[in-house]
């Protein structure tokens, strides 16, 4: 079943048009990977979906049109984003960063605390540093925190913008396993932007290839991986 879909999505920054009308779909329970060169518009796509930049086109989530909906209502509807780079709040403690992730939740501080403890069990390294400033964490720890924080809003769709950036290969693997586990066990749908195509393709249900604001190829991971021209031109393996 289609969870999220965008038809003719355009977005940009002021006069600069970046997305030239793209079609995108995430079905329930899928991990969809978006690949593309630097500057292709991947981050812009994420921002447009979250509603933090002006966008046009037909955008639906869970059957509702969300094109005119503000970013806070989009989070409440069930879309959370892990922004590219260190998107944590450096002056808040690790624990308060997680609490900030639950900003839109209305189910009481007990349930929020239970979720926080759950993430601390999954990321023991964060638990050890729970009352430390988030700004004092290492890059990888901050990335873990950013993901846990996004999941604190209990989203149905997670937008993940290059979560592996700056992480050691081992940690990247762990992180991807974790995303897969969340997808398998909790039915979390994921739209993942990734430079490490090889790694990302392994867990992808489907793949989109973005080039200068246009989708130039899409299909299942197997289809895309099997296409020699695409592989040589975009994936580099």
């Amino acid at each position: 079943m289609t969870l999220f879909s965008a038809r003719g999505l355009t977005a940009g920054y002021g006069p600069l048009k970046v997305l030239e009308g793209i079609d995108l779909e995430v079905n329930e329970g899928e991990i969809v990977v978006m690949l593309g060169a630097n500057g292709a518009g991947k981050t812009t796509t994420m921002r447009a979906i979250s509603g933090v930049i002006a966008r046009h086109g037909e955008i639906t989530f869970d059957g509702h049109n969300i094109q005119k909906v503000g970013p806070d209502a989009i989070v409440r509807a069930g879309i959370a984003q892990v922004p590219q780079g260190r998107g944590t709040f450096p002056e808040l403690s690790v624990e308060d960063n997680l609490r900030a992730g639950a900003y839109v939740r209305r189910d009481g501080s007990g349930a929020v605390q239970a979720d926080i403890d759950k993430w601390f069990e999954l990321f023991p390294r964060l638990a050890e540093r729970r009352s430390q400033r988030a700004g004092s964490l290492s890059g990888g720890e901050q990335q873990m925190l950013a993901i846990a924080r996004a999941l604190m809003s209990r989203p149905r769709l997670l937008l993940c913008d290059e979560p592996s950036m700056g992480l050691a290969p081992m940690i990247t693997q762990e992180l991807f396993q974790m995303i897969e586990r969340l997808n398998r066990d909790e039915g979390l749908s994921v739209l993942l932007v990734e430079q490490n195509a090889n790694l990302a393709m392994h867990m992808a249900s489907r793949v989109y290839l973005l080039e200068t604001g246009r989708i130039v190829a899409s299909g299942t991971a197997a289809e895309i991986g099997a296409d020699d021209t695409i592989r040589k031109a975009y994936l580099g393996f």
Binding site: S50, P83, F89, P90, R99, A100, A150
Partner: peptide, 23 residues
């Protein structure tokens, strides 16, 4: 309070605060 966290969040990273659902 919850609002105080959102204020520091806005100060530290307003885009990230927006995608956390802070209006």
């Amino acid at each position: 309070s919850r609002m105080g966290r959102s204020l520091v969040a806005i100060r530290d990273n307003s885009t990230a605060a927006a995608v956390m659902g802070v209006n």
